[in-house]
Design a protein around this nucleic acid. Sequence first.
DNA 1: CGTGTGCCCTGACAGC
DNA 2: TGCTGTCAGGGCACAC
Length: 248
Amino acid sequence: MRVALNRADLRRPFPADLVQVMTGATVTGLSRRAKYGLMHLDRGATMIFHLGMSGRWRIDPETAEPHDHLLLETAQHRFALCDPRRFGSVDLVGTHALDTWPQFAALGPEPLGPGLSAAYLKAALKGKTQSIKLSLLDQRIVAGLGNIYVCEALWRARVRPTKQAGKVTGPQLARLVPAIVDVLEASIRDGGSTLRDYARPDGKLGYFASSFDVYGRTGESCRRGDGGMIARIAQGGRSTWYCPVCQK
DNA sequence: CGTGTGCCCTGACAGC
DNA sequence: TGCTGTCAGGGCACAC
């Protein structure tokens, strides 16, 4: 493939050898770990990208955009990594060393994999005084959950986001695991969550946002019909939405 | 060590 | 119609 950079950095600098390593390489596969995308190359290297909050790959773009920072061109397609806020990142790691890459080595289990269970959560959260909301956002506890899905999962499991993680009860943990799985599977099925600027690579919108039970529903009534009014609070500098009636 | 805070950056939107 | 303030799907450095 052909490779071009339009600037030197996103969140951090692009790898110094990115263009040299990727130019002429062939993509042998794509995969994902937590919120990172992986592009495996035929020369023993893997490009790892994170889309941050505003990043997306534009496929066969007809026009250039100001925030197209990295351009790839294969025999079949052109790809532009567009990221207005530049909260994303691109790294280059030896394919044999992916598991020991520091950002991966510290990650918790995948929520849709076999590692997430009530027993695991009980052990991982034991003694933690931090809120369950912030603990679930911690990628070292569970890999890949973001603000929307943590809020939605806690509502489904009827757990109050401010509850200390170490004090979440056994029955609550038992509800939390399927709640996390269900909310992720539902969102994947609906094509993701379009808020302001997110779109799928083909430009289509994700419709899971229309299914939110709490996210962004400040002041609206709880869908459980318990008379609760969805509240918005701040935790760790991020917004949390929950129902004060059914989430305990 | 665990926990909490603030900041990186641009753009969209609400309210005046 | 401009202006201003606020907020955003995340992660990290840093202070205590």
